[in-house]
Amino acid sequence: MPKVGGVARRATLIKDERAAGDAVLVVDAGDSLIGDMEPAMSTKGASSVEAMNRMGYDAALLGPADLSLGPELLKQRIAESQFPFLSADMTIAATGAAVAEGLVVREVGGRRVAIAGISGAPEINGFKAADPLRTAQRVAQDASGKAEALILLSHAAPEINERIADEVPGISAIVEGGALPRAEPWISAKTGTPIYHVDWPSSGHAGRLMGVATLRLDEGKLLSEWWRSVPLDPNIKDDPELAAWAQQQPR
């Protein structure tokens, strides 16, 4: 069975999608920094940040595994990133300071798009967590009037994300992380907000699939959406630059 995944193929997909669309956002819904493989473990996520910098990510959520690095290492990773790491619900317990930005507004293809993040993490490693639903309500209000779309990245439990989709207006789409993917988008019957969740990690297996959502929007309202899951299989050629860089990284 052929191997699937890798940053070289991911970079190719990202480049192809950026070339095909007018307004393209590249985001990660959490737990991108470390897992059970090198070099991420020994570099404490520094190699992951560099890979995402090279792939041109627009934003990434801090998931529970990312937060396990602790406040000091996370500060370093955030400083090294060329994109914002997001977490609107987590604060540093000792100081009350936010771990990362909660909401950013990016100009994408001449359009202003807000991106917010909910880590949904437990209160360990020196962090305090706010209620995810209340946090979602707060960021949706903060984003109102500032952008034509709001993409919420969330690593909260699926049932919580469904509640957010049902109860918080103004969210164009939720991109979900965690262990349980959704074979198809879950669409709220109340608001029409879709939830996308493409991949699931397990020991020795991660970063195999990418999701591509196409949203048609008008004055903040979602008119239609279409989503596909893309396995990063050998049909996708390696981006030569990312392949060369990845090969040089210590294992």
Binding site: A23, G35, G109, Y196, P201, G207, L217
Partner: peptide
């Protein structure tokens, strides 16, 4: 009206290489 493409990943765990 406009079309926004959202390319997304999750739980990549810092993997650089393809896996089985």
């Amino acid at each position: 009206p406009f079309e926004l493409t959202v390319v997304h990943s999750n739980d990549t765990w810092g993997y650089l290489d393809p896996c089985g």
